[in-house]
Design a protein around this nucleic acid. Structure first.
Lengths: 205, 205
DNA sequence: GCGTGTGAAACAATTCACAGCG
DNA sequence: CGCTGTGAATTGTTTCACACGC
């Protein structure tokens, strides 16, 4: 079976499977069962099979899944067959870490420009890029076909900047600012807030 | 009603409410309704009321919630009334950003030591700390009552280091390495992987 | 009237268990 | 025989809707 409404949780797990498959490929595995993949990804075998069944039939009964094939199929489903251009707002310590983060390149994501509202930071080199002033935002987004914005700025300015990104054509935002963004429907936002993660763990300690 | 099994999703939302309450307090709000809080936190009013009802009755009928009171109650529930000592492993660009991240201090989390296996990095200053060699890990954890470990290291070494942390008494891990950690039950792990977040957004673009 | 707190209803996600195929 | 793919059963989560108190 293919198509139909795919729950978001299912989509959110596909990257975990992909990651696990990459490690198994490195280790030279050709075939993998849903149990083995589950052990590697931290998910139950039944869940893996159910999740994959939303998108098609990728396994061989009695054998398991071909690592290389399943990997390429998940990449296709997640639209990872081309490189995504991203733009970063915020040239602080986190911004530096993100520009220098190697895993983006290895996974077809590329930060093509860095912006900051602080005039003192504009012009400074950061990795292979140079910090640009906010005025150039829209032009860069449109000229370089940037679809994803990364916010590494304080919560105070995040909403305003996010709106600006969206008005320029950005369709997804990776938000490191600890604030909920209110944007028009259809715009995807992912939140990465270490404090929130820590706080929910604190409950269980 | 108090106690009973609280679902993890509920606990995971409390930090969002707390964050929203902090902003409302800054803006001078004394009272807030579940709808207003929901708008700020990106959650439905009914859900907020249901979530809070797992822990007690915090609101006033016809009025809403007292911002300061609800805030203090959620802090209490999440055990944020004392400071949590954390330890960081990995003195790369991300490690630097984390040590200099101001929001930790403002929320009763504190990185008390940084470790790295690279001899070239040991001894280097990073923020107000100095990078230490891995041998000192256990001693620091026990001497300084460190309960949370942060992994900002490559995936290859994350499992081994995580096991070491756990064997020294760490009870929660904030994991930036893109790999699923297998640890004994009771150890909490939060995963923060920007690539995984980006990949699941890519599906919808 | 307004907004909380909460059972009951609706909906969603996960696990079970087994037919079917290599 | 082993392991996938999948309906059915179970379990979990969210929304509804209304009694109750301010």
């Amino acid at each position: 079976m293919a198509k139909a409404e795919v729950p978001e949780v299912v989509v959110a797990r596909l990257p975990l499977y992909l990651r696990a498959l990459e490690y198994m490929a490195e280790r030279g595995h050709d075939l993998v069962s849903s149990s083995a993949l589950g052990a590697e990804a931290g998910v139950s075998p039944a869940q893996i099979r159910k999740d994959l069944s939303y998108f098609g039939e990728f396994g061989k009964q009695g054998l398991g899944y071909e690592v290389a094939y399943l990997r390429s199929q998940i990449q296709r489903i997640l639209q990872l067959d081309h490189c995504w251009n991203m733009l970063l707002v915020g040239a602080g310590a986190l911004g530096h870490a993100l520009v220098n983060y190697r895993a983006f390149e290895g996974h077809h994501y590329r930060i093509v420009a860095v912006f900051d509202s602080d005039p003192a930071k504009v012009g400074q080199p950061i990795g292979h890029l140079v910090v640009e002033p906010m005025q150039g935002l829209c032009e860069t987004i449109q000229a370089r076909e940037v679809t994803i914005g990364i916010l590494a700025i304080p919560a105070e300015s995040a909403q305003v900047v996010a709106e600006e990104l969206v008005s320029c054509g950005i369709r997804a935002i990776l938000n490191y600012a600890p604030i909920h963004l209110v944007l028009r429907p259809g715009i995807r936002v992912s939140y990465l807030d270490p404090v929130a993660s820590l706080q929910s763990m604190s409950y269980f300690l």
